[in-house]
Design a binder for these strands. Structure first.
Length: 536
RNA sequence: GCGAGCUUAGCUCAGUGGUAGAGCUCCACCUUGCCAAGGUGGAUGUCGAGGGUUCAAAUCCCUUAGCUCGCUCCA
């Protein structure tokens, strides 16, 4: 156990295997590499594709209330103004030239009771600002660190043509919300999922592929009714205090809190499905202080990487912030018309409406919100309209790939019949995400009829699964090669397969299991369903 | 971005100014009746890149890129 932990803590061993076996290479290594960029080799690209596919199947195709989107990486620059990335991504920083400590300029000023001065596009420190660490006034100018990659659309490079590579996939979903809502025949509550590349010009990429500058995300924006609409429709709002059944189908009376918890549970279920054991994951509920101002709750799903416990996914309840921002910046209404809400409202008397409105306005005012905004919101509800709220499970594909690699990696000490010790390196991937599902191995290669038989079995299985053909080296060595890339099954075609010796074994093969190293005899005809079953 | 350490074959690494190496891997053939270690042969390097010092540089100096760690950052 201890040795296993020790082995697992060695990221170098893992990255070396990843290179040796074609999972992950440094990008542009031919030219010395480029900081913060990584390539996925033959095995890694299969692994990542399997992760993406498993997510898509679980999140989109396996449900009736989520649809997909595949949007562009470069979008209208106004999107990033609406989302807050254009300003929030560019914190001005200052370095102390004496003690080398770096500060956020705005925080430094705040600590000293002053305010950072904005002079056009430039930031200026007030006179007399000191380094809080060493007291020196020898500080650099505030410099903006814009984390978005800038580019120019069209041939002319000026401010009017500047745009950005998306720093997250989510915004495209909000920007296309109206199109999707009006064409997909879905109505709230429903979700839109997207996976794809995002780019962040990280100041300091670290920890292998964990924080890179080009990365992939799998994001779901799940749109729900505001709790006030749920109350009008169902007469009540179910909260976590009601102990709802989160395993069953979603219910119309669920409030945002329940939806949020539901998605946390769904995501955990999925992580287990792709082979991350429940006890390898930790939930971190952000405290009120840590939450962004618009967020109501945010949970991080964390994995114990060799370099520390780090976030794989964040699941945020973001209220109606995103769609409201786009409504504000685009001038287009993000309201949806909810027929169920309208029907419910039509049954209400004027007195009931007035009472409801008074109650909601009082709640909003108590929460420190604007009274007239509350009144306008309720008036909209009475028309059957609202801006949907959103629950956002946002996962990092590359981070998960790394977590699955770390989790799968194992070195087993074996002792053979002669008492000789041997280390077996094996990747215990779940069959559904393993890059190769089956390796087909002819026991010997100098017997044409055996070789041909194996070749036919390989070609058949290849129609269904990613398979590997290996005819070189001793059979044991071939098994071990497959162990290192995590192939769950090796199919060995031997003389019994040909019906030599025991005729009852004709057309059966040896299936060698990766994890247990056990071998079972199986008819060739059953291979396909056997492998398929294991991937469930 | 700052500081420290590092970069030699596919991988792990040895090599402190004088002919670039080892183990594993990989490839071919032989052998091989089920868990890497048999036999024979073979391949692979502008010693991260560029510049300098020197008769001579993997080795010393400068610049640069990348990696690791620590700061910083992580909307």
């Amino acid at each position: 156990m201890d040795t296993k932990k020790e082995i697992k803590s060695n990221l170098e061993v893992i990255s070396s295997l990843c290179k040796r076996r074609g999972f992950i290479f440094p990008s542009s290594e031919l030219y010395g590499g480029i900081n913060g960029f990584w390539d996925y080799g033959p095995m890694g690209s299969e692994l990542k594709r399997n992760i993406r596919d498993a997510w898509w199947k679980f999140t989109v195709q396996g449900r009736t209330d989520v649809v997909g989107l595949d949007a562009t990486i470069i979008m209208h620059p106004r999107i990033w103004e609406a989302s807050g990335h254009a300003s929030g991504f560019a914190d001005p920083m200052v370095d102390c030239k004496d003690c080398k400590k770096r500060h956020r300029a705005d925080q430094l000023c705040e600590e000293q009771g002053t305010k950072l001065i904005q002079d056009g596009k430039k930031w200026v420190l007030p006179e007399g600002t000191k380094c809080t660490q060493c007291g020196s006034k020898n500080l650099t100018e505030p410099r903006s660190f814009n984390l978005m990659f800038k580019t120019y659309v069209g041939p002319i490079e000026d401010d009017t043509s500047a745009s950005f590579l998306r720093p997250e996939t989510a915004q495209a979903i909000f920007a296309q919300f109206l199109n999707i809502e009006s064409t997909s025949r879905k109505s709230v509550p429903f979700g839109v999922a997207q996976s794809g590349k995002s780019f962040r010009n990280e100041i300091n990429p670290r920890n292998y592929t964990f924080r890179s500058r080009e990365f992939e995300q799998m994001e779901l924006e799940f749109f729900i009714r505001p709790d006030e609409a749920v109350e009008l429709i169902c007469g009540k709002v179910t909260t976590l205090a009601d102990n709802p059944d989160l395993d069953g189908d979603p219910q119309p009376d669920w409030g945002w809190e329940v939806w949020h918890k539901y998605w946390v549970e769904q995501r955990l279920k999925w992580y287990r499905k792709v082979g991350l054991p429940a006890d390898s994951l930790e939930l971190y509920w952000q405290t009120k202080d840590e939450l962004a101002h618009y967020a109501r709750a945010c949970v991080d799903i964390e994995y114990a990487f060799p370099f520390g416990v780090q976030e794989l996914e964040g699941i945020a309840a973001r209220s109606d912030f995103d769609l409201s921002q786009h409504q504000k910046f685009s001038g287009k209404s993000m309201d949806v018309m909810d027929d169920k809400l309208r029907e419910a409202v039509m049954k209400l008397s004027d007195e009931e409406k007035a009472a409801f409105k008074a109650k909601v306005v009082a709640q909003w005012v108590e929460a420190g919100k604007d009274e007239s905004a509350a009144a306008a919101f309720v008036d909209k509800l009475f028309e059957g309209r609202y801006i949907p709220h959103v629950i956002e499970p946002s996962a990092g594909t590359d981070r998960l790939a790394l977590a699955l690699i770390c989790n799968a990696y194992d070195e087993e000490k074996l002792v053979d019949a002669k008492g000789k010790e041997d280390i077996r390196t094996v990747m215990h991937f779940h069959p559904s995400i393993a890059p190769v599902k089956v390796a087909v191995l002819p026991l010997v290669k100098n017997r044409p009829e055996l070789y041909e038989k194996a070749r036919r079995i390989f070609k058949d299985l290849q129609q269904e699964f990613n398979c590997f053909w290996d005819e070189t080296g001793a059979i044991g060595r071939r098994y071990r090669r497959q162990d290192e890339i995590g192939t769950p099954f090796c199919v060995t075609v031997d003389f019994d397969t040909l019906g030599e010796g025991d005729a009852s074994l004709k057309d059966t093969v040896t299936v060698r299991m990766r994890d247990s190293m056990e071998q079972v005899r199986m008819p060739v005809a059953e291979l396909e369903s056997f492998v398929r079953k294991s991937m469930k």
